[in-house]
Amino acid sequence: MHAFAYARPATLAEALTLLEKHGPDARLLAGGTDLIVGLRQGAIRPAILIDLKRVAELRHVIDEVDGRIAISATAVMAEIENDDRVGRHFPALVEAAHVVGSVQIRNRATLAGNICNGSPAADTAPPLLVYGAVVVVAGLKGTRRVPIDDFIVGSHQVALERGELVTAIELPLPDRRLGAAYLRLTRRHGTDLASITLCCAVDEAGTTRLAYGSVGPRALLFIDESGVLADPGAPAEAKEAILERVFAEARPSPRSIRASPEYRRAMLRVLGARALRSAIERLAGG
């Protein structure tokens, strides 16, 4: 690993000042599970790392405020897995957090980092899209809230301007009953990067939200308000026709060594149908 400088700001203002000063020469360090791999492989060569773990404002890990759950930028996957409120309202996010690497990784990797790293295969992106998460972005000029669908831009691209950082990811508490499921496809049963990530939620009003990733530059969200997908009694062909349209947007890389485009497209259909079935069952099961 090359030599770099390291800063450990104690306040958000300090962090933002550093970030403004160093611009693209700086990288933010939260869990480090992607960042340090990038440094190790020489893929990135920042001059300075700004460690966010001791920023006072980011210490409140997971909070419930004003009808939403706020997950701080320093909250790690293990905390999300074990949080009752997240588990109660956003079980598919817990399912996704639970498969991010090994226990050791989940003890370090943050939700915000998983999103800001911008990997198309980020496990938590589909559930965050499905649950309508909002990314809280702070800069010296103030704070803005960006819907996750706008925040994720492309492969390793997110909607952060120079001098900005993510302080939290907020999840609005659902106002309807939901059934949701997260599924992924891997090359072995053990920990692996997913070649498909897929989350599906159906609500009692008949709306289906389905998001999938790892088959294009970014995870994509689709909302079906026709009621067909969510309807346990709807004919399979009708559902397949809708899913076909949903998955037509997939653009799997032909260069990937993890799975061929053909296989990924086929697996979207398989996992899509399974996740939908599971979401419907869970809604029915309460």
Binding site: Y6, R8, G32, T33, D51, V103, I105, N107
Partner: peptide, 14 residues
């Protein structure tokens, strides 16, 4: 907590 010490900078363990 169990962590991979290859992915933790020593300064982070301060």
């Amino acid at each position: 907590s169990a962590v991979n010490s290859c992915l933790v900078l020593a300064v982070e363990a301060d």
